[in-house]
């Protein structure tokens, strides 16, 4: 069956120039250009808020300082479950950088739903959740770079260099970026709940604490009782913080491959969940007036 677009392409369109035929690579390139543009817009937006940016980085230094004081006492007699004090501080630098760089995207969605502005986005040539994801992921990437740099410098000052740093960080970096994507998708999913709930902030708090515990934010999963550790290691929260940080402090090529694969699976799953949730949400939308 021929579509109207196919006929136009064959006819050369109004301008006389032939239309581009949609191929798989052409579609991917067009989508990459579109969302790359939104991502850059989100990234540029971050650089404007310099004061918040400095405070966020300062807070990371204080958190690492407190953690150093705590773990210095706990690990005074040597490593527990394989983590030395040096590994622990560098591990926390990575998990904290991932957590602090993720934005509060759910608030924007909540506002859009409350004000009804979300209705206008339906007419745009891209899905609303994809736009918000690209915008916030771009911002998160910009926040991540200085947070990682400051986290590493703080850890270096507090406990000294991390053995095999270059190898560890080269394996961990792709995983950190994928972990950030998982985090952003979670917050997008929570934001979409605003179509059903007046205030989604409590859902965000609970999600934050799930990452805090099962993502191994402050305490590596290896400290858990074995049965709980086994469950936690396969959860998306672990792929968001624990595995990327563990790769950085205990690099292993085989573990890196499993981590990337696990992250891609969870990204696909969460993106699918967001799409389904948004599709269900659009059915609940009502527009009044003009």
């Amino acid at each position: 069956m021929r579509s109207r677009n196919d006929d136009r392409a064959a006819a050369g369109g109004r301008s006389g120039r032939p239309f581009r035929v949609n191929t798989a690579s052409g579609t991917i390139a067009r989508l990459a250009r579109r969302y790359g543009c939104i991502l850059r817009y989100g990234a540029r937006n971050q650089l404007i808020y310099l004061r918040s940016f400095i405070m966020r980085n300062f807070f990371l230094i204080v958190i690492l300082f407190v953690m150093h004081r705590l773990w210095r006492v706990i690990l005074a007699d040597g490593p527990i479950v394989g983590f030395t004090l040096v590994q622990m501080l560098w591990y926390l630098a990575v998990t904290e950088a991932i957590e602090l760089s993720r934005g509060r995207l759910f608030q924007d969605i909540q506002d859009d739903v409350r004000t009804g502005a979300v209705v206008y986005t339906l007419a745009r040539p891209y899905p609303y959740p994809a736009f918000e994801f690209a915008r916030w992921f771009g911002g998160a990437l910009v926040r991540l770079v200085p947070l990682l740099a400051i986290g590493f410098v703080s850890a270096l000052a507090l406990v000294g260099p991390l053995p095999r740093f270059a190898y560890g960080i080269s394996l961990a970096l792709p995983s950190i970026v994928l972990g950030l994507a998982i985090g952003t998708l979670w917050v997008l999913l929570i934001g979409l709940l605003a179509f059903w709930s007046e205030d989604v902030t409590p859902f965000y708090w609970i999600y934050q604490k799930i990452v805090f515990i099962f993502g191994g934010m402050f305490l590596p999963i290896d400290y858990f009782p074995e049965w709980l550790a086994a469950i936690s290691r396969v959860l998306p929260t672990a792929f968001q913080a624990y595995w990327p940080a563990r790769l950085a402090v205990a690099p292993d090529a085989a573990v890196a491959m499993t981590t990337y694969a696990g992250q891609l699976v969870w990204i696909a799953g969460l993106a699918g969940a967001c799409a389904l949730l948004f599709a269900a949400a659009t059915k609940r939308m009502h527009a009044h007036g003009g």
């Binding site: 706990i74 527990i80 479950v81 709930s197 007046e198 205030d199 902030t201 409590p202 859902f203 708090w205 609970i206 934050q208 604490k209 799930i210 805090f212 515990i213 402050f218 305490l219 400290y223 858990f224 009782p225």
Partner: peptide, 28 residues
């Protein structure tokens, strides 16, 4: 509804830290 969600959400949110300290003290 928002009031109750916020109150109970915050209670749940804070409870997470008990788990952190329980696990930590159990380990050390």
């Amino acid at each position: 509804a928002a009031f109750l969600t916020q109150v109970f959400g915050m209670i749940l949110n804070n409870s997470a830290f008990i788990v952190f300290w329980l696990v930590l003290f159990r380990a050390v």
